[in-house]
Nucleic acid binder design. Structure first.
Lengths: 114, 114
DNA sequence: ACGCTATATTGATAGTTGTCAATATGAAGA
DNA sequence: TCTTCATATTGACAACTATCAATATAGCGT
């Protein structure tokens, strides 16, 4: 099935499909998925405005349990959007400017290319 | 339960939680969720590079069924990232530059504020 | 009106994810 | 070492999502 013969010269050019590789798409999708949750966006926003925030200051304002906050911060971190540093008992988070900037410019430039 | 009394003046400032409203967070999360899928990213990338693409030219290169492509394009469209226009039998898609630009700058500026 | 073709919708299913209670880990102080 | 506190992990469950086959809708040409 599919349409192995569908798009001939029908409406537009055949278009080289070397636009965005599978790996690049997976990589970017993973980062955007980290931003695809309201609670994580608010966490990110708080960290961005405060500069540095420890986890204990996130549970209260966001109204989520401690395990849930931990889950979200680690998801943002594993996507490279924030960076965590343990200082004593506390976990401090800051934004990974470089990574976020790269993501944003990928967006404006149409996703593809670095 | 929760921690109604947890973050006193413990590690950092109490932080006004007027950072990102629930509604704004939902709105932005919805847009990022549209970008949180590899197939949709490749669709977006193709549209961005080609300028205008009709749906029939997406099924082939992406190796997904017609209903699946339709599902993805409508998800991107309902997030405002692409704009569709029916011309005869064909559906033409183009990038919503304004919306994408706004998303990208929200990212670099730390999500919050417009 | 009829058939052909491009796109949309429906229904079903497997996989993923946000959430919390319970529990574990790890760091600091006595 | 024992206790306390901040964070991480586990297990379970409800909600959501990507996918396709089947079917419906809609535009064009004859």
């Amino acid at each position: 099935m599919k349409n192995a013969d569908a798009p001939e010269e029908r409406c537009c050019a055949p278009m080289g499909d070397a636009v965005l590789s599978n790996d690049e798409a997976d990589f970017l999708a993973y980062a955007f998925a980290a931003l695809a949750d309201p609670i994580r966006l608010r966490i990110f926003s708080i960290i961005a405005t405060e500069g540095e925030v420890c986890s204990c200051n996130l549970e209260g304002p966001l109204g989520r349990s401690q395990p849930t906050i931990s889950h979200h911060t680690s998801k943002l971190a594993s996507a490279g959007l924030i960076i965590g540093e343990r200082r004593g008992r506390w976990m401090w988070w800051r934004v990974n400017e470089a990574r976020v900037g790269a993501l944003a410019s990928a967006l404006t430039l149409g996703i593809h290319q670095r």
